[in-house]
Design a protein around this nucleic acid. Structure first.
Lengths: 213, 213, 213, 213
DNA sequence: CATGAATGAGAGTTCATTCAT
DNA sequence: TATGAATGAACTCTCATTCAT
């Protein structure tokens, strides 16, 4: 409580943009770009409409800034995966698990996907951004992981498109969670297990089949 | 010929609701529910604002009717699958192909998915509808197909969630197409081949592996 | 009273634009372009804000249309002067009188001048329009009248700029009336008499001086 | 040198009000009272919004102060005319010339006229001020000059309103310059010569006509 | 059935003004 | 003295909806 009081003007000011962006995220998620009122974002922050315009020129720019704000963390998030150890199989399994954890835990990532789908035609940049910063790296990592497995003889030779198909169930999981949220229950563990099971069987050298699984 | 004219006019009127629903689909796709103006739908049909309200009480009801209108075909569409012949493997492969064809050819199905994601919180019924009429039947069919394969020894025993994971790449494909449309090229054949390849390897009894593929 | 009732929708609609333009004139005169609220114009007509936008796309276009509306009458008004009869002196005198009558009686002409001065930098077209439709014709008529007088020996040879200077007191009178309105009284007859007196003395051939005045 | 700096800084502050008034003049000229933003005035001075309010209570008072600021010089400017020497004719000619020089050289005088016309109904005081400080003295001087000329037999007896009419072309010139600025070229010398020519012919005793011109 | 003029409740945005620093 | 974050009232413009014709 004293905490709040202690905030000097300067501190307040430094926090405002982030406060607004966070509030904007919540409101835009709830109602979509067009139906969200700048005033609602403002009241969520506890300021008035005008204050929003001190920090952002238009509702449009606020939306774009919000997207950038919530996208930023993913960029370095995906780069950490390279450090995995173990056999290709183990690493593949591990990475899939991490992706599911990300999808389950990171509401922002999920909602970003909704924005991309719902507002993509209004904000084409976010579609490209999302592809370049999220989808493409995922594909690349998966592709190189599979390649490793093929090289060391754990996986059978696979067409390039395999990487896409291998991560696809996770994408579908994300979309399901986004769409049905609480309405239909999707159990992470069950789904994840089925996913891993399928792709490992699907990838392993038949000769290894009994051994590697 | 006057007869014809009059008939045509009468037919015109009988077609009005459908014309409006089709126009509504196009406009709602282009701009989303909130940003679409009733007037734009009207001019697409070639009538004026007021006419829309002769047929639909509110914009909201028009939207819902439009969703019902474009959803209708899918209902009987999926029931045709049962008639497939051949081994479980062949039927599985065939069905997957059909799903991709559907996704590629049916823009309405794709955009329905976008509506579900984008407007789901505004129109919760459409989410349920979509699940019951599209997602659930798909899962059921796939599940029973897999079960058949297991029974006849073609597929290894699989957990229930397998059905979801098996169709997931197709869902992801749909979402990709929806999201990136022309921006990123996804080749149906390449992706489909990888998908089928993966799941057949993933499903087949190892013993059958060499034989069934 | 019945008159009002009898107005059909169609008639109403035909009158609306003019009603709005007239109301706009009054409001813009009273407060200037920027300070005038579209809503005030609407209430003056007895309709609501939205109605204005049925007829005019923006406040700016409404203003421009209003200027065109009040300028239109002047265009043919000035062309009637050519029909004057009598000696050059008589015709000059007559025309000057007509100009003063115009200035005195036509509030719209006066206020147009104010718009040109006050809003000229915001609406450059109206400045040009005003010059071409009002100032220039006035100069031309005066110039040809003087030329006539010179040719028939009534007036002494005069430089071209004379026409401007000869009408200038009327312009100044207009500006005075515009500026001081009721605050300072300017008597038309006294001022007009002095004006005519001055220019006739100033123009007449000295030889004619006693005769022509 | 530190002294100097400090002095300069102190001087800076002393100059602030004048700097602000000068900046206000430019901005108000450019956009008119209502459309001018206090912030624009501030940035022209190189300070921020708040600073303006240190020196002026409201935008309205700032405007009025600005008007007073630019009007001040005219007050003593017109009193200098009495010192003219020569015949009435020479002095009249001289004074007319001075008025044109004033109009040509003094942008502030010209724009003051625009403020009077454009903002007169919002700021009635400036209309009165302008009349009392500028128009009325001009008329008075001209009237007494004419009276002198009449007394000494150079000018013919003239009605009182003559003074107004005699200066009117200069007023019209001012308004023209204000209105058309660069758009239409008005040559000072040509116009002035025509003006003087007209009024001298118009004022001189016919008997003197050949002699005095 | 079809029209389109009219409504009126907002929505985004602006800006004079205040006040803690 | 100077700042600039914050306010809140006002303004332009939009659009779903109504209803007389």
């Amino acid at each position: 409580m004293d905490d709040q009081k202690k905030l000097t003007r300067a501190e307040q000011k430094a926090r405002r943009p982030v406060q607004i962006l966070d509030a904007a995220f919540e409101e835009f998620v709830e109602r979509g770009y067009v139906a969200t009122r700048v005033e609602d974002i403002a009241s969520r922050v506890g300021v008035t409409k005008g204050t929003i315009y001190v920090y952002f020129e238009t509702k449009e720019q606020l939306f774009e800034a919000m997207i950038r704000h919530i996208s930023a963390p993913f960029e370095d998030l995906l780069s950490s995966v390279n450090e995995l150890k173990g056999t290709a199989t183990e690493r593949l399994q591990k990475q899939i698990e991490q992706i599911y954890d990300l999808i389950i835990n990171d509401r922002k990532l999920r909602e970003l996907m909704r924005f991309v789908i719902a507002e993509g035609s209004r904000f084409p940049q976010i579609v490209d951004r999302h592809h370049d910063a999220f989808i493409y790296p995922l594909e690349q990592q998966m592709a190189s992981l599979i390649e490793d497995g093929v090289k060391c003889g754990e996986f059978r030779a696979a067409p390039a498109a395999f990487a896409d198909v291998v991560i696809a169930p996770a994408i579908a999981f994300l979309v399901f969670k986004l769409t049905f949220e609480d309405r239909r229950i999707l159990d992470r563990d069950t789904y994840l297990k089925a996913h891993v099971d399928l792709i490992l069987h699907g990838l392993c050298e038949p000769a290894f089949a009994s051994g590697c699984l």
